[in-house]
């Protein structure tokens, strides 16, 4: 009986991520020069930011436009905790995630009680307020000069000194974060969020605590961004308010949408495309950099009209490709 046949996870879904992880881990051995290694490290860090955005926008269906503020908050928290309070990096890393998740929940609660649409405005406002505070609170953040000389990442005495060490450390952290978020989003929590995204009124009528889940989604997204921010600050060895402007938030949002809403591989693909294409063209076509925001904007409009869930978003892949990847079974009579 076709109906009672148990669903087996396709092998591409089962082993694909592991294969990808192994291939990525080999990258420092084959890449020529440190520049491209740096670009790949940056891509992975951005993929973490995009993951945070995607939990909020893709799974829970709320448009947030201030993730860079949470990235910045995580970066500043981690940098200040290691440099001023003398905490070790792993502790500061976890603390920055907790701080950002708590701030996210506190910010989201009042506006999600009213309407999720307002969240996008409040997060824009929050991003600008964060920039103002970071730029003007001289005693704590040194203002626009930024904080130089941030110590490199260090775990139990092992210090990530060379760029390939840092690459592997970031890869490990990113893999753990992607794994944890995937476990959450493919389980009951993620399904409930999708239900709220698709029909809020129906979800509420079925007894789902809509506001609670939305705040939880936002807290998770902000926490992930905070963790990514800690990596970012200690990888760049420098933090300044300019790194966390509203433009950065818009970039993260564009990556999430380009790659695909509610899609794990989409997070990586979006970050990859939006960082690699400009970097690859930077030397040969410098004028492209100046019109990049416009191109990105036009891409957004086009995506919204023809592929509103992004390149790899839910139910958006052509059936032929899904069959090829064994994501979908052949129709059987």
């Amino acid at each position: 009986m076709a109906m009672t046949e148990t669903f087996r996870t396709p092998f591409t879904v089962k082993f694909g991520p592991w294969l990808f992880l192994i291939l990525m881990a080999c990258l420092p051995l084959v890449l020529p020069g440190r520049f491209w290694l740096h670009i790949f490290s940056l891509t992975m860090i951005y993929a973490i930011f995009v993951l945070g955005q995607n939990v909020v926008t893709g799974w829970a269906g709320m448009l947030t436009l201030g993730q860079a503020a949470f990235v910045g908050m995580g970066a500043y928290a981690s940098v200040l905790l290691t440099m001023q309070a003398g905490l070790s990096w792993p502790l500061a890393f976890l603390a920055s995630g907790v701080i950002c998740a708590a701030c996210g929940a506190a910010l989201a609660l009042p506006c999600l009680r009213v309407k999720a649409d307002f969240l996008s405005l409040v997060t824009i406002a929050f991003n600008q307020i964060f920039f103002m505070v970071a730029n003007n609170w001289m005693e704590l953040t040194r203002g626009p000069m930024g904080i130089p000389g941030v110590p490199s990442m260090q775990i139990l005495g092992w210090k990530a000194r060379s760029s390939s060490d840092q690459f592997w450390l970031i890869l490990g952290v990113a893999a753990i974060l992607f794994f944890l978020v995937a476990r959450l989003m493919h389980g009951q929590l993620g399904r409930t969020m999708k239900m709220i995204r698709d029909d809020e009124v129906a979800a509420g009528a079925l007894g789902v605590n809509v506001t609670g889940y939305k705040v939880l989604a936002f807290a998770i997204g902000c926490g992930v961004c905070g963790l990514g921010g800690s990596l970012y600050g200690h990888y760049m060895r420098f933090v300044s308010p300019d790194m966390f402007k509203l433009e950065e938030s818009l970039l993260i949002m564009q990556m999430a949408i380009l790659g695909g809403l509610a899609s794990m591989p989409g997070c990586a693909l979006g970050a990859f495309l939006m960082i690699m294409i400009p970097e690859a063209l930077r030397s040969s076509e410098p004028w492209l950099i100046t019109i990049r925001p416009g191109v990105a904007g036009a891409t957004l409009v086009a995506l919204m009209i023809w592929r509103p869930n992004g390149l790899l978003g839910f139910g958006q892949m052509p059936r032929s490709i899904r069959r090829l990847l064994r994501l979908e079974k052949e129709a059987r009579p």
Partner: peptide, 28 residues
């Protein structure tokens, strides 16, 4: 108009995209 009947966040994103295009055009 093409996205008027889509999920709520779709027109917001496309509005933002249109805004970015206008800003880039004006800057050019």
């Amino acid at each position: 108009r093409p996205v008027r009947h889509s999920n709520r966040i779709v027109p917001m994103i496309s509005a933002l995209g249109a805004g970015l295009v206008l800003a880039a055009g004006a800057q050019l």
